[in-house]
Design a protein around this nucleic acid. Structure first.
Lengths: 149, 149
DNA sequence: ATTTTTATTTAGAATTATTCCAAATATTGA
DNA sequence: TCAATATTTGGAATAATTCTAAATAAAAAT
């Protein structure tokens, strides 16, 4: 469980939290690991359920708190798709999200912006902090020939 | 109020609604006009308040219904920014939304995608129905030299 | 090592946004 | 005009998130 690699990751998490003025806690460590273990895009509810497996006493409020802290220190992004609950994503590489209308699946899509500011022409004076690109459509297995007719 | 131009617009709205299987109702007409009158990005609550000025008996549930219908027949988009309430936008030209962290303002930003699929490289098989690009940052008046220090 | 300070966790209540419901009403088509 | 069907309405129900205050834990100071 607590290999050398894990220790390094904890130290790195600790540093990240500290630079944003947060403390290192077992709950934050655990919630972060839960996100890393299964690279999908869970809601808070789902993170809560997964977190309880190894840490049965963790509370919903704490999961909210931990996720907020992780977002604020730049280790996690939130993903807002349609009207549903916010989802969380520990992939901080520049990428965007594809949402399949048919199966509800969410996919990370690599994003290689062409030109300055991802090809956007922003008027003078706008300072960009973050892009958020999401795409709605049909994923390969729902659109493909084997999909339902 | 009901000029020739308005009649044309109503006929066009009627057609749009009809092609998606919706009926033309005074409420839908009114909610759509409310959106067109002030080109910002109101929440349902705000649309409700504005709608009641001229149509005091309209209900919240109806405003939700009307907005849904307008979205489904392609006259209105919804704008999901951060965790707050969904906002609505009657600008159907290809554009994206800039959200100012400081003042909370929302700006339409023209979007001229360079290359196929807006510069994105989607893997085989993904069929895109809609892009949604939002940008977080600071707007000119909050970032500018006259902004608070 | 102990104390102090401050942040975090916790459970549950409160709030907010949205959806659902069933009866009354309005619209469309025959 | 009548029948069939969709829409509107107000309120209740649900879902997601935030707030609250007491207990606990972490970091800093002694």
């Amino acid at each position: 469980m607590s290999s050398k690699k894990q220790d390094e990751m904890d130290a790195s998490l600790n540093k990240r939290l500290a630079t944003s003025g947060f403390r290192f806690t077992p709950q934050r460590q655990h919630v972060y690991n839960v996100l890393l273990q299964k690279r999908d895009h869970p809601t808070v509810e789902e993170v809560f359920i997964r977190s309880k497996e190894q840490m049965p006493d963790i509370s919903m409020a704490t999961v909210y708190n931990c996720l907020d802290a992780l977002v604020k220190c730049g280790l996690v992004r939130h993903v807002n798709l349609e009207r549903s609950a916010t989802r969380y994503c520990p992939n901080m590489k520049e990428h965007c999200h594809f949402y399949c209308d048919d199966c509800g699946g969410i996919f990370d899509v690599d994003f290689s912006p062409s030109g300055e500011q991802g090809g956007l022409q922003l008027p003078e004076g706008f300072k960009v902090k973050q892009f958020d690109i999401s795409i709605r459509g049909t994923c390969p297995s729902c659109a493909g020939p084997k999909a339902k007719p």
